[in-house]
Amino acid sequence: MPLSQDPMRYYRSKRDQQRPRVTDKYTILGFISSGTYGRVYKARSKEGDGRIHAIKKFKPDKEGDVITYTGISQSAIREIALNREISHENVVELKEVILEDKSIYMVFEYAEHDFLQVIHHHSQTLRSSISAPVLKSLSYQLLNGLLYLHDAHIIHRDLKPANILITSNGIVKIGDLGLARLTYQPLQPLFAGDKVVVTIWYRAPELLLGAKHYNKSVDMWAIGCVVAELASLRPIFKGEEAKLDSKKNVPFQKDQFLKIIDILGTPEEREWPGVKDMPEYLNMKRLDRNDNKLYSWCSKTNFAHGHEFLKQTFAYDPDKRLTARDALRHKWFQEDPKPTTK
């Protein structure tokens, strides 16, 4: 192509020469996971102390067999933009971003395990529950990271065991900001951007009922689910997801809602006045009524000490749900058995 046709050619070749390549800086050691947006690799830095990193490579877009530029996904833009601004011990740290050959590589500090693996390890290998002090420590650190995000006006919107990491020293790190959003003065309401947020088992009732407005408290519901899962080693509300219909309408997630009211009982207007304004309210009314059985769920899980805490994170009314700040001050963390470091 003649220069007059592509005046940016000179610029690009200059940049291409300056830009370090991933393989100049890192030795790829192996493959960790493959997700919706791409793959995660384990890699060793070639510089300095040879530290281990996790490199998340966003899937490049393809047209047929040829990789082309089709525009960076909203999810990648979010994850990159938010990670560049934040820094906290309990949030996975982004070391650098390398843009190379139409692909984006995000280099993160390495965390040995995620919560999913910890849960699996206890249920399958050790066949014993996570001890109360460790469980409290994990929960506390998780809340500490979440408070940081919330104070920075970030809603995570995809908290679940696979997105919560833990280092070999037992430090909890919140990861995967691919669905996270700044909530400070949004130009359009949050629901307008993403029709579906939060993996179904961890999705708050107001989202299941089609709320058009929601806030940080959706993360606290997910935290409740994660803490319960750490206690019982299985998802507390394990519903079947109803698929989007052909017009991409989001159906009422009946089974998921049933799983919730199975344990927490049917939401009452007196505890959640806003419930009657929810778009799916009538669908919910049609479900069989149920009483709250959270205490007996906790007892049989050997988790009676966590009942008060769970009850408050599982408040149906988002405005009454425990906040991250209040959760950190909850007496559960002060009572015996006290949290330890792992």
Binding site: M8, R15, I72, I80, L99
Partner: peptide, 8 residues
């Protein structure tokens, strides 16, 4: 999209 990539 290519320009976006270099811009970012």
């Amino acid at each position: 999209a290519e320009m976006e990539f270099y811009l970012v």
